[in-house]
Write a protein that binds this DNA or RNA. Structure first.
Length: 256
DNA sequence: ATGGTAGGCGCCCTA
C-alpha cells in the first residue's frame, strides 16, 4: 500500500496536477492540505471519475483538508472530541478495521512569539491529546500532513539562518516530539536518505531552483506500521510543473 | 528589519 501527503495550495488551481499525479504515482491513499475550498464546491465528481473516494472538510479562502483513497473508509471523523473545528485542518479516516489515517494541516504560526504562534502550540497540544486517546483504535495508525515544522537541522537547507525561526523553533519541535513520543516514527528517517531532500520551497527568490528548502511534510507511523514500511521518498517532479504548489508530495510504501 | 511570489478575495491577508 502506497500512502502520500501533499499540500497543494488551492485544490481548484491544482486539481489537474493532482489527478495526473494520482495516475502516475499509483498511490492508494493521498492526504491533501490547503484545499481552500468550501464543502459545497468540492470537486467530488472529478475525483470519483478518476476512480477514487474522497472525504473532505474545508472553508473559504484558508485551510481545508481532503483524503482521497482507492478503498472507501469505513469511518470518517471531522471534529475533535465532538467539537466543530474553527479552522478546518484535521480529517480522520479509518479503513478495513485496522488502519487509521489522520490528515493534518498544522497551523503555520507566522512568527515566533506571535498570537498565531501561540495558537499553533495550543493546537498541537490538543491534537496530541486527541491522538493519545485515539491511537489504540486500530492496529496501524498513520499521521500525515503539512506539519509546518522541520524536525531536525538535517531537514533545513541552512540551519544556521533558520535557527529559532518559525518552523524550526524549540517549542515547535518539542510539540512534534510529544506526538512522536506517543510511539510514532518519522517514516522518511526509517531509511538512509540522500542529503538535502526537502518537501517545501518558498515561491520567492528562486528557492526551488537553488534547493533552498525545508522538509516540513511528514508521514508518522506507529510501531506496527513502521515495521511494515519498505520505502519513503519525496517526489519533487510536481514542484517542476508550471504553476506548481510550493510543496512536493511525500510518499511511504507499506507491505500491508 | 525587509524583500521576493502565489492564491483568494475584493483594493489586503496568509503563507
Amino acid at each position: 500500500m502506497k500512502i502520500a501527503s501533499w499540500n497543494v495550495n488551492s485544490l481548484r488551481v491544482r486539481l489537474p496536477q493532482v489527478l495526473s499525479w494520482l495516475k502516475k504515482s499509483d498511490v492508494d491513499i493521498l492526504g491533501i492540505q490547503e484545499t481552500k475550498v468550501e464543502d459545497g464546491s468540492f470537486p467530488i465528481k472529478e475525483i470519483e471519475e478518476a476512480g477514487f473516494f474522497c472525504d473532505f472538510i474545508g472553508q473559504k479562502t484558508y485551510n481545508g483538508v481532503t483524503t482521497i483513497s482507492k478503498i472507501p473508509p469505513k469511518e470518517v471523523i471531522k471534529s475533535i472530541d465532538g467539537k466543530e473545528q474553527e479552522q478546518k485542518r484535521i480529517l480522520l479516516t479509518r479503513y478495513k478495521d485496522d488502519l487509521t489515517i489522520l490528515n493534518l494541516y498544522v497551523v503555520n504560526g507566522s512568527e515566533v512569539g506571535s498570537d498565531k504562534y501561540k495558537y499553533k502550540l495550543k493546537w498541537l497540544k490538543s491534537v496530541k491529546n486527541f491522538i493519545k486517546k485515539d491511537l489504540k483504535k486500530t492496529k496501524y495508525y498513520l499521521i500525515l500532513g503539512d506539519f509546518n515544522i522541520a524536525p531536525k537541522d538535517a531537514d533545513i537547507y541552512d540551519p544556521k539562518a533558520w535557527e529559532g525561526k518559525i518552523l524550526c523553533s524549540d517549542k515547535e519541535r518539542s510539540a512534534l516530539k510529544e506526538i512522536l513520543d506517543l510511539g510514532f516514527k518519522d517514516s522518511f528517517r526509517l531509511f538512509d536518505q540522500e542529503k538535502d531532500l526537502y518537501s517545501w520551497w518558498d515561491y520567492r527568490t528562486g528557492a526551488f531552483r537553488r534547493n533552498r528548502g525545508l522538509r516540513i511534510d511528514l508521514i508518522l507511523t506507529n510501531m506496527a506500521l513502521s515495521k511494515k514500511c519498505s520505502k519513503s521518498l519525496i517526489d519533487i517532479e510536481p514542484r517542476k510543473n508550471e504553476r506548481p504548489s510550493d510543496h512536493a508530495p511525500v510518499v511511504s510504501i507499506f507491505d500491508i
